[in-house]
Structures are given as C-alpha cells and as structure tokens.
Design a protein around this nucleic acid. Structure first.
Lengths: 339, 339
DNA sequence: GTTAGCACTCAATAAGAAGGAGTGCTAATA
DNA sequence: TATTAGCACTCCTTCTTATTGAGTGCTAAC
C-alpha cells in the first residue's frame, strides 16, 4: 500500500510528465507548491516507487518517468474527473443541434471535433447497422442482367448493392419477388435477414416463380460488406505533433495500422460498455507500444451501437480525454436515439 | 540546344539519381558502360548543364542532382515508355475480371494496386456522378416528419439523403410527388435535376397537391454533397518510406494536405485529358515542393469521368509510373463502360 | 577538344572536453 | 527514527576539433 506522500509524489510526477514530456527530477518536485519536504526525501520515495514498479528511469542519472504500471494505477485510483470548460461543452453540443443532419455527417464531424479538442487522433466506429430493421426492400433494374438491390432501414440507413439478374427472370417476376420479400422482411433486423430468407422466403418464391437461382443469396451477402459498421477518423496527423512520435518508424507502423480496417477493429473492446482505457502494451500491438487508447460506447436503448476511441501517447491527458469522451458519447447516443 | 553528349550525361544522372537518391559524381558516370570519355570531360559538361539550369549541386563540392527544369526536360523529351512486366499486367487486369464487382470496390482496389506497383501514393477521383442519369426516384418514410429520398442512376449509383416531411403531407401526397417526379426526372442527368425541377415539376406538383413547401429543394441539394465525386487513397504511408521524407515536418504537411478534400482536389488538372505531369513547384503547394504528381483520366465515351493520380517524390520513377497509369486508366475506362 | 593532376571545399564521422541535470549514499540533524 | 544537507558519480547534451573522403574547378599537358 502506498503512503500518502508516495501518492502525492506519484501524482505530481505523472501530471508533470503528461504536461512536459520530460523526465521529472527531485528538485523540480520539491520546488512545487504544496510539497513540504526536501529533494532528498523525494529521492528516497522515488527510489521506493521505482522498486514498486510505478516509476522508471530513462538512464541511470535521469529523472523519473511513469511506468505502464504507474499509469494504470493513476488511471484506476487517482483520476478525478476534470471540469470541462464551457467553451468545450458548447462546441460539442452545437454538433447535435441540427436535427436533420444525417447520422453519417454527425459522426464525421464528431470525429473532427474530438481530435481538435483533445489534440489526439479520434476513431469512431459507426453505428452497428446489423440491428436496424428493414423498412423497405426494392430492386431497380439497370441494364440487361444487372440491377441494384436497395434496403432502407427503420433508422434511415440505406444499403445498396449491384446484383445480377438471371436471364429467365422477367420484369414482373422481379416485381413479384420484391413484393414477397417486403411482406416477409419488413421489420426484420439486418443480421437475421439471411436466416429468415432461408427459412421462409425461398420456398414461397420458388412456388410463385418456379425457379430460384442464386439471385437472392447474393443480395443478402450485404452483411459481409459492413462487418461492423464504417470507421471514421479525425486528426490522423495529430500524432505527428507529439514528441514521442518523432521516430519515423513508429509513425509509419501506426499509420499502417490505421489503414488496415481489420486491424483497427481490434482496438475496440468487444461487448464492454462504458469507458475503457488501454495503456501501452495492453493494446497487444507493437505499433501501439507507446500509445494509450481510451474507448467509449454510444448506445440506443439497451443495445450497444457503436464505439468512440481516442488514441494518443501513453503520456496522454487522461483526465481531459475521459471527460470529453464521456460528454461526446452521451451526446451521440441522444442524437441517434432521436433519429 | 543540348549536344548528344550532354543529353547522354543528363540521362545517366537522372536515371542514377532516381534509382539511388544520391548526388551523382563525375567519376561514377565515367565508370558507366557506354561512356567513352573521362571524368574531367564529364565535369566540364556538367558545369555547362548546371549553367543551363538542368542540374544543381547540394553544396559546392557535391555531385550533381537534377533540377526541376532538368526533370521537366527529361519528362518532355527523353521519356521512353517502359516495357512493363507481364506480372504487372496480370495484376492490373485481374482487377477487371469480376463483372459484378461494384464500381466503388473496383476503384478502391485500383488505388491499392497502384500504390503497390509504384511504391508511391495513389489518389483516385471517383467517377463524376453528375453525368449519370436518373433511373428511379423514391421516398421511403422513416418516422413522423422524416423520410429517405433515394435516387438510382443508370449506372447503378445510389444517392440517398435524409429529408424532413412537412406535417401537412399525407402518405398519398408523397406517393403522388414521387410519381410526378419519376415521370419528369427519369433520364435527366443529376447535374440538371435542380434546374429541371424548378422549370417543370414544381408547378405540376403544386397543382396536384396544393402546397409546395421547401420539401423538394432540400432533396436535390444532393449536388452539394458530392462536389466532384469521392476520393480514394492507396498507400498513404508509402511516402514515409522515401528518403526525401525523413523530415517529419514535410510529412505532416503532406498528410494534412491529403486530409483536406477541398485541397487535394486542386492537384487534378481541370478539363485536361491524357497524362499530365506536374513537377515540384509546378504543383503550387508548399507541401508538395518536393513532390511530383502524375495524373491520368479515365472516361466513358466522350465525357470525362474521373482522374487517377500518383504522388511521389520529384525523384520518382516517371517511366514506370506513366506506363502503369496508362494501363490502369484504360482498364478502368473499359470496366466502367461495361457497367 | 580531351585529359591528367592538383589544390580546394564541404559533409560526415569520430573523438575529446565541458557543462549540467540528476541520482545514490553517507553523515549530520531535528 | 525520519528528514535533510552535502558530495561523489553517472550519463546525456552540446560544443570543439580533427580526420577522412567524395567531389569539384582550374590549369597545363597531350
């Protein structure tokens, strides 16, 4: 168990390092207000804190730097919520004023604002369309043999896809199929379309039209295209402003990571709501050894809907980021709910 | 006018510098096969070429480096098309096999392949949807007061947008509007919708329904959303591998440039078809002082449709990039035409 | 016109010297 | 016993100073 004085020193070191990115020395701490003991005492305490694993040195005679364990402790036990300025609150809330703005746009803008307010990089996982329910299904013929299949959901999302029409289908056949599908599928969540289709619709269609080629299965492979919802980024270049990323190699690895949709998905914790913090190696990614990721989720009703993440250096301003993320996720939740 | 020997030396220097990124010295050149004169002679010629503005020195006693004027001359008068390997051709053409792949997907993949083959960054301006013609227009009500408007074009592109429905519109009113619009708008290019609407449809609708609120104007502001077609990137991080971008500041400026949609548009020459090369300052962008941009266009029939660009260091492999871009743009043109 | 030879320039690298921030330990102090 | 002052020591950083080597420009000889 840490003594009060140790806690105090740890706090000062972490706050200072977050602000300056420089190792913190004992004299520096002693000079701070509210510190009533000498540099020598602090040195002793720091040695203890290092032994306990909360601090590290960059070399034998350098000041101390928080270790991952140090950040973890800080985040778990010492993080008081920050008072956010009115200005920030206004910036965020103005986003959600325009009722007729499309969800996609709002998210895009949210990502930008997040990165601006935090000076880090923001990533937003779009709402999970899989739970939307079909409102209307239609097929629009384009040319001989091809057509566009369109699904509109109850939240106004539109999913469309080019399909091929077997030659033996006539226009009225297509119309029949569309009618049958609308009867059966309206109200069904996207994620269940495939199952529903196999269970009910195929038989009915075959019965009405006689043939049932691969047509329909190809339509509803939609799922494959939007595995988990789109990904939106804000402030990708903010990383480059952080002193810890003066190393081109690190930057490249990080950028490459962000280009790979499948990889970036993994930074979002699955089936966990609320705010999650992953520090350095906790991300299980070489490229993110020196990064922390803070994620939040936004929801509609009971069901999880999407995630927001801020990715920055381990030395990031956890207090501020957590508060802003909190504000933003609840704002987004309310916004999407209205839609 | 340059002598034959000067041409030969210029060629060797540029080819060498493109390959190694190192200033080229007189001894190095003298050692090359096919060079029948001494280093001293070459030094004299180089001094002349420098005086003419085709070469530069990085410092008083360094080897020579091509100047912008040198590259320009090389590109205009000395660029023989490169024989592309079979492997490359296969890679590109395999892209266009799958007839049922969506245009968007093909473009996305094209961008990736381009960046892979060239080791530079590729940017593709999506086809200009403005010239597509309306195939079907529909409105799907979502909740009280809101609906989704959908336009399907003759090339299978789907444009959709959330709109608000004035309270005094009934379901059957909406249906009437949709019918009228389909009668009037099918076959009209997207870019003319707005005009067409004002000229013809409004009167008819007002007559049928009695009121004509802002409903429709809001629908067709679509144009504003897709100014010039979407932008797709490939190999954004390839820049970081080039020795000329070891400077973090340059990298940041370039990356920031690419994040700004409106700015990146400007690198595409307007209303010019064929292959265009812009070298260094010709791009009129501080961030691209050390970059060259090679653009090509892909077309359907007579009308220009979209652009492809490769952005790399001024020291890029012009021969190879031009050839690959040529292949890719004609491939894309044929692909889109089929759709 | 071409080339060999030589003095000169400048970047890059290495090696040393000085300065400074910081630590760890010991001994004195409250 | 807990705290602190003092001091030796470490190692990074920065600044010089040589040293080397690639390359040029010029001159004189071929």
């Amino acid at each position: 168990m840490l003594t009060n004085r140790q806690l105090q020193i740890l706090q000062v070191i972490i706050d200072d390092f977050i602000a300056t990115a420089q190792p913190v020395g004992s004299r520096q701490i002693a000079k701070k207000e509210g510190i009533g003991f000498s540099a020598a005492t602090i040195r002793n305490e720091m040695a203890d804190l290092e032994e306990l694993g909360y601090l590290e040195k960059t070399h034998t005679s350098s000041g101390r730097v928080p270790s991952e364990k140090g950040y973890r402790f800080y985040v778990d036990h010492m993080l008081k919520p920050q008072i956010i300025t009115n200005q920030d609150i206004i910036t965020i809330q103005s986003l959600f004023q325009d009722r007729m703005m499309e969800t996609e746009q709002v998210i895009r803008k949210s990502a930008d604002i997040l990165s601006e307010l935090t000076t880090y990089t923001s990533i937003i996982l779009g709402p999970d369309v899989q739970l939307h329910k079909v409102r209307r299904f239609s097929i629009v013929p384009i040319s001989v043999g091809s057509a566009v299949a369109i699904i509109v959901t109850d939240h106004g999302h539109v999913e469309n896809r080019l399909i091929s029409i077997p030659e033996n289908y006539s226009l009225s056949d297509i119309e029949k199929v569309v009618n049958i599908l609308n009867e059966r599928l309206v109200g069904v969540p996207l994620e269940q379309i495939h199952k529903k289709l196999e269970e009910e619709a195929t038989a009915v269609i075959a019965q009405h039209i006689g043939s049932y080629d691969g047509l329909l299965t190809s339509i509803f492979d939609l799922n494959k295209y939007h595995g988990e919802g789109k990904i939106y980024y804000g402030g990708k270049t903010n990383m480059l402003k952080q002193p810890e990323f003066h190393d081109l190699n690190k930057v490249r690895m990080l950028m490459e990571l962000m280009e790979k949709t499948s990889q970036i998905q993994t930074i979002f914790p699955h089936h966990q709501s609320g705010i999650q913090i992953r520090i350095g190696s906790e991300n299980h990614h070489i490229a993110m050894e020196d990064c922390s990721v803070i994620t939040a989720t936004y929801t509609i009703g009971e069901e999880q809907k999407g995630s927001i993440a801020i990715i920055g250096p381990t030395r990031m301003d956890y207090r501020r980021v957590v508060s802003i993320l909190d504000l933003m996720s609840s704002g987004l939740s309310r916004f999407i709910e209205r839609h």
